[in-house]
Design a protein around this nucleic acid. Structure first.
Lengths: 338, 338
DNA sequence: TTGAAAGCGATACCAC
DNA sequence: GTGGTATCGCTTTCAA
């Protein structure tokens, strides 16, 4: 492999010292305009691109941030949140010379190990903490390692800088929408209880119903998966007194729910109204198109990246609140049947 | 941020020179068993983890490989191939101390720039070339930069080490399956023509039909997207003489096709049989469940990673052939209606 | 404003 | 078998 152009080559070409090259190319003061121009020209001619290796050793930064998907790699295939989230991260860090190091971790034990290695080996300058769980062990790890980290949608009082998008408002809108359609019997299909966002959504659902003086009705686990939605539909639709409206805690389980409801001969929304939560693209293409609460994974990723890079630079940052997720009414919700 | 323990600390602790520590910890010869033990013990006590930064500067390796998703970040949300592919890469490189650097690139021009930067900045030791296009400019770039690279599903004669999974066999099986069901009028929904895998699938489809002495029938573009499938259905089902069986070049467009067919009052498979290509998980959950050709993105990722790391180590490698993608018969294909 | 030189944390070569 | 030491490419003092 041929050796690349280094800062020495540029310095030689411009007839200056490498320290001047460094200063000039990093827009630091202490270089005359004339010298700077000469240097920039020389760098351009030579096609100089600073070596990330060299600068990270000297500068004590790796210029990369880490994201660990701490579930089976298959979630990347099925969970559309990550696509948007990663896209948002990219759009911020790319321009700043940072790269995203992605890890997937099949088993929970490996997750901890990953964070430890990333931090100790100084492979990344900071990490994103997504899909937070109750008493998430990662918090202690990053704190112990003094590794900059940003939390995604944690509960209030989370000890690290965080990005949040309010879910309560959107869920309240769902309930109001369903109430206005005349629904009186409801059910909720939730996510795994160890996830904070599962709890948040269920609590918001309960609270919203309560504010309308409505009984919560059955609450079953949909596991955030398509299959979970299938199962939930079986369980909910088998009851003697069926709900006329169901909210699923994410779009994927809502898709499963609808498919199974249709399979069992129910019409959506004529027999039963169904909503999801997330706002994945696919939902808009379904028949019926899925009414849902649209979140902003891309924006969340963008803001999280901003916070993380600031934290890495040693700045103290405030938490960020993304505008609330809001109701998107499509075709899977309609007037109560009876 | 507290300074980490370095190789110097370990050397001091064990009372030896850093060079011995380096040799001992990397299982290189030239260290007595006794010394090695002392060093390993010292390293363990101190919790020493070698700095990737230091070793990459000295060792001329970054211990990371790059993947550029050279389309809009949204594809990560909609295209399930990446999840499995990335998971496969991870499962190989993780154990070898490598990390995956992921880039998304909204605009085509930026793609080239990305590769150039990754290579010139020596941020990665090698890259994956996926979704190859006809006369793909990336090939020249990596060759010019002497950047190790591995191609995914290229045509024969591709100048770089590659991983291929045969598509022809699976597609032939689709045709045979449909013919055995009595179908005589066919249509094909293809992908964007600049992609090599689009062409490969269409050619295989044509070849298979020819081998059964059947006319190809209409071939329309489904853009590999759900919406493209929707549009393709509109176009194909509006014809006076409709096909009774349709193959879509990927699952996503097949899903769109089915949804739109149903929307227009056609029953799948009673009125029209539909198959996809990819074998995404979601396909199994649809109603009707999607008949398709199952590929192995995870295995492809794994093997591609293996090739890439070998190439990086300077070994010359042979191309890898994954066992062919094969037909999965589910519910979206049935006997010809008339 | 400029340049010389000291690290950063490893690897690798070369004497001893 | 061992321990110095040059080296990788850059950032960052600190003199001049």
């Amino acid at each position: 492999m041929p050796d690349r152009v280094t800062i020495n080559d540029v310095a030689a070409r411009a007839g200056v010292a490498i320290s001047s090259v460094s200063s000039a190319l990093n827009d630091r003061p202490g270089v005359s305009e004339a010298t700077r121009k000469k240097i920039v020209a020389a760098a351009a001619e030579l096609g100089f691109v600073p070596s990330v290796r060299g600068r990270s050793l000297a500068g004590k930064k790796t210029f990369s941030v880490g994201l660990v998907v701490h579930r089976d790699p298959d979630v990347l295939e099925m969970d559309p949140f990550f696509g948007g989230f990663i896209g948002g991260i990219e759009s911020y860090i790319d321009e700043r010379g940072f790269a995203l190091v992605l890890h997937t971790s099949p088993s929970p034990e490996q997750v901890i190990d990953r964070y430890r290695k990333m931090a100790a080996g100084r492979r990344v300058d900071g990490v994103f903490l997504n899909e937070l769980e109750v008493d998430d062990p990662r918090v202690e790890i990053v704190q112990g390692l003094a590794l900059p980290a940003v939390g995604i949608n944690p509960d209030p009082g989370f000890p690290l800088p965080s990005v949040r998008q309010d879910h309560a408002e959107g869920i309240r809108q769902v309930v109001q929408h369903l109430v206005e359609l005349g629904h009186e019997r409801f059910a909720f299909v939730g996510g795994p209880e160890q996830f904070i966002h599962s709890r948040q959504r269920e609590l918001a659902w309960r609270a919203a119903l309560t504010s309308f003086d409505i009984e919560p009705g059955p609450i079953v686990d949909g596991r955030f998966t398509y299959e979970g939605g299938l199962d939930a539909a079986d369980s909910i639709l088998a009851a003697r007194i069926r709900p006329t409206a169901v909210m699923c805690a994410n779009d994927l389980s809502a898709m499963g729910f609808i498919a199974q409801a249709q399979h069992r001969g129910f019409s959506v929304p004529a027999d039963i109204s169904v909503t999801g939560y997330d706002g994945i693209q696919l939902g808009g293409y379904l028949r019926p198109a899925l009414s849902t609460v649209r979140t902003s994974p891309k924006l969340i990723g963008f803001e999280a990246a901003r916070l993380l890079l600031s934290t890495i630079d040693g700045e103290s940052v405030d938490d960020v609140d993304i505008p609330p997720a809001t109701l998107v009414v499509r075709d899977s919700t309609g007037p109560a049947s009876s």
